Amino acid sequence: MTDATVSQVLDQLAALDDPKMRAVNERHGDDHGVNLTKLRAVAKALKTNQPLALDLWRTDNTAARLVALLICRPKLFSADDLDRMLRESRSPKVFDWLVNYVVKKSPHAEELRVGWLADPDPVVQSAGWALTSERVVKRPEGLDLSGLLDVIEAELKDAPERLQWAQNYSLGLIGIHHPDLRARVLDIGERLEVLKDYPTAPNCTSPYVPIWVNEMVSREAART
């Protein structure tokens, strides 16, 4: 697409930028101030457009990259493309959307999952754990769940924040979806006490694994 088309999208996003929202987002590491509902509306109007998505990504503008992830064709990216894009993702929101909206739909997801889990960069590792969580729930066949728990047990307590959250999420999902491992998951959670004191809003479930797992299991039991 032409630079003018990219410029038009950037102008539209700039017009939607709200300083108050930008201040809130910046506290979470995201340098944009566009309401995500409005940003999604921009993407919906553009429709799927891989060339424009690539051009928007190259702008290195956070809001533009979020739009790019919504209008791209995930299956057209190579594994190298997605690995490079992940490492370019400065914004947590861009990082999360890339993993959840693009990589998970890619035919290269499993290859990237394995590679990212072994990466020395803990932020890249967190993407590997996000893909692992997807498999824990949807395609656990072939996963060494006990081995994953060994890694989590050894690393979770002292892991950097983003990696810790990703590993904690995998830990909880193993406990929720695999009853045979639930006792071990709860034991790990109780001993490590990761996120035990995390402030949780009313009517929300704590990310502390013993509380989270027991709550979700109770809800499922109540539905059956």
Rank of each mutant, 00 (worst) to 15 (best):
M1Q: 07
M1W: 06
T2P: 06
L10C: 03
D11E: 15
D17R: 04
M21C: 12
R22Q: 11
V24W: 15
N25G: 05
N25Q: 04
E26I: 15
G29L: 00
G29T: 02
D30T: 00
D30I: 02
H32C: 13
G33V: 13
V34E: 10
N35I: 02
A45D: 11
L46G: 14
L46S: 13
K47V: 08
D55H: 11
D55R: 12
L56H: 04
D60W: 05
D60R: 12
T62L: 14
A63M: 03
A63R: 03
A63D: 02
A63E: 08
A63Y: 00
R65F: 07
L66K: 14
L66H: 08
A68Q: 12
L69A: 03
L69V: 03
I71T: 01
I71L: 00
I71G: 01
C72W: 02
R84G: 12
R87V: 03
E88M: 04
S91I: 00
P92L: 08
F95R: 09
F95K: 12
W97Y: 06
L98I: 08
N100Q: 07
Y101Q: 15
V102T: 06
K104C: 05
S106M: 14
P107T: 01
L112W: 10
V114S: 10
W116E: 04
D121N: 15
P122R: 02
V123W: 15
V123D: 15
Q125Y: 08
S126K: 07
S126C: 03
A127G: 15
A127V: 10
A130F: 02
S133E: 08
E134M: 13
E134S: 10
V137D: 08
E141L: 11
L143D: 08
D144F: 01
L145C: 05
L149W: 01
I152R: 03
A154F: 06
K157D: 07
K157W: 06
K157P: 11
A159S: 06
R162A: 04
W165M: 11
A166M: 09
A166G: 07
Q167N: 00
N168F: 12
N168K: 14
Y169K: 13
Y169W: 13
Y169L: 09
S170F: 10
S170C: 13
L171G: 07
L171Y: 06
L173A: 09
I174N: 01
H178E: 04
P179M: 07
L181C: 04
L181A: 02
A183E: 15
V185W: 00
L186I: 06
D187T: 10
G189I: 00
G189P: 04
E190W: 14
L192M: 12
E193N: 08
T200R: 14
P202Q: 05
P202E: 05
T205H: 05
S206K: 07
P207A: 00
P207D: 02
P207G: 03
Y208G: 02
Y208R: 01
V209E: 14
P210T: 09
P210A: 13
W212H: 15
V213R: 10
M216H: 11
S218E: 09
S218I: 03
A221M: 11
R223G: 05
T224H: 13
